[in-house]
Design a protein around this nucleic acid. Structure first.
Lengths: 176, 176, 176, 176
DNA sequence: GATGAATGAGTCTTCATTCAT
DNA sequence: GATGAATGAAGACTCATTCAT
């Protein structure tokens, strides 16, 4: 809590996630983190590197949460359904702000290669994670589930409502 | 081409779509539109109202494109598949920038009620449009198709690749 | 009421008086007057000339009011005291905004000769008016009354209170 | 001289006093102070807070000057008359720009509570200062002197002339 | 006489970053 | 390791004025 670097990351993470990257200014970050302006540049070489740190940390945390939720079951079908429960849980805890990576993606152009890679890597991991649970299924089914998983996230953010998660879960339940 | 208001809208639309809303400054808009600063505020009362105009125009245009594509077929199944062709066509024409509405959604908080409404209304229209084609299907199937349609857009933006559209289309083809 | 020139003058007068000259923009004037922007420049060659028109009109109206109030009495002493009643009446009607001329004077530099002259002429008229009532008094007494009259205006604006008028009136009452 | 914060305050003070608050732009302030635009906002959170700083500083300086002048005499009557000499001295040194507080008052509406308070507090202090010298006099006499003191300031600004100070001083001299 | 469109220069304020201490 | 001061560029927006219709 009193480590400036960590405090900066946590503050920036919350702001980047809730307000977006460009809508968040350095001033707000340092003010809310209670850190001197120059200290930010002591620990992170630029605003963008702070963004990268956020995404990397978020990746770790999010995957951990996913594993925790899916770890409660053992059969593939139940584990996949538990993944949708994770989404529902996220929506409640984070007020339907959706996927941090897809949100940043929207603010990203092809020039931002470093950021783009982190985002894509995250999603590849998610896709691989689901596919790993569904090794017995054909790839088309694996993709099918992944695509429904993704739209469950996006659409519940859009409507500020859990119905897309619930519908997607229902569909997937019928599928497997 | 020489109507300043139209030129402003077209320029801003391109920039908002390609770079995002917050990453686009008024200066860039007026410079590329070749219009005086104050002229922007003569036609649009604020940057946000320019964004709203963009989204409204985009809604009209995009739905029209969707109707054109789906209008080429008559049977529900073929019309739905044609909708996915539309996505593929968009990706090529617009360089995988994805959905203008979902991109802006990422930069939007709950405070931005007017913007949020336009975005949600657009998606409700899309959902209703697809459901209308699938009136003979159960609602779960309708939602199923809608969710795959949405993730096809998002995921092809993410990977800068058409595979999500193609996979989604294949899945839907098997479904109907 | 429907004469644009008159409407412009009345609107600008209110705004200049209540908000000050520099704090009042052309936009607000034309918006509240319900007149096209260019129409303003049809009737007044500049914002400054609108200000001049305001001051001239105000001079006429204000002196008329002063004459009305003082006209109710006939003896010099009573007429002077009535002048102070006029100030109190103004304060109530105009919410303690003080003297329009002195207020504009504060926003005026030595370069603004035309404006400065109108302001000084107004005050010279006021001074002469009071002196005319007090022709039997020495000049020092005349000035004395004038100075108290002026500070009654300024100080009641400052404190948003009638006490300076009342005190000044009491002093003058004892004097004459 | 090389402290930017002080230089900003001095520059702004001069401009606010000579030109008025609204007529003075941030650009002019930073240009004449030789300071970067953002540096202004490092030291003062807004243009208005710069104005407040000006008024507070001015209050201190002005009262000190008043005390210095009145301190030269010991008898109440002489001290009061010295106060009028202070006004005359101000007029000469500052080219008849009058009272900084009353000038800003003219640009102030009831909404600007912070500014209004500083102005009123200044004048209350002036009034109390004069009253303190005249403790032996009745309150009406104290107010009488205060009102003449105030109009001496205002009217000499108006006419760009010392006569109002001299006349007021003469009157007060006869009074005490 | 009246107007909507257009503008260059200006408004106040914040941006992300660097530097001397 | 930490910081307050400093900055050039940019942010969104408004100014008073003119011109073609």
């Amino acid at each position: 809590m009193s480590d400036p670097k960590q405090r900066l990351l946590e503050t920036a993470s919350g702001l980047f996630y809730r307000q977006g990257y460009h809508a968040t200014g350095i001033n707000q970050v340092i003010a809310e983190a209670g850190v001197a302006r120059a200290s930010l540049y002591l620990h992170y070489e630029s605003k963008e590197s702070l963004l990268l740190a956020f995404l990397q940390q978020r990746h770790t945390d999010w995957m951990e949460g996913l594993k925790t939720f899916t770890g409660k079951a053992s059969k593939p079908r139940e584990r996949i359904l538990a993944a949708f429960d994770y989404l529902q849980d996220n929506n409640e805890r984070e007020d339907f702000r959706g996927c941090a990576f897809l949100n940043i993606l929207s603010e990203t152009t092809d020039q931002d290669t470093a950021i783009l890679r982190v985002i894509q890597d995250h999603k590849k991991d998610v896709r691989a994670f689901l596919a790993d649970i569904l090794t017995k299924e054909k790839q088309l089914v694996q993709d099918h589930v992944y695509l429904l998983f993704e739209s469950a996230i996006v659409e519940s953010q859009l409507y500020r409502n859990q119905w897309p998660v619930q519908e997607a879960k229902k569909v997937v339940g019928g599928l497997l």
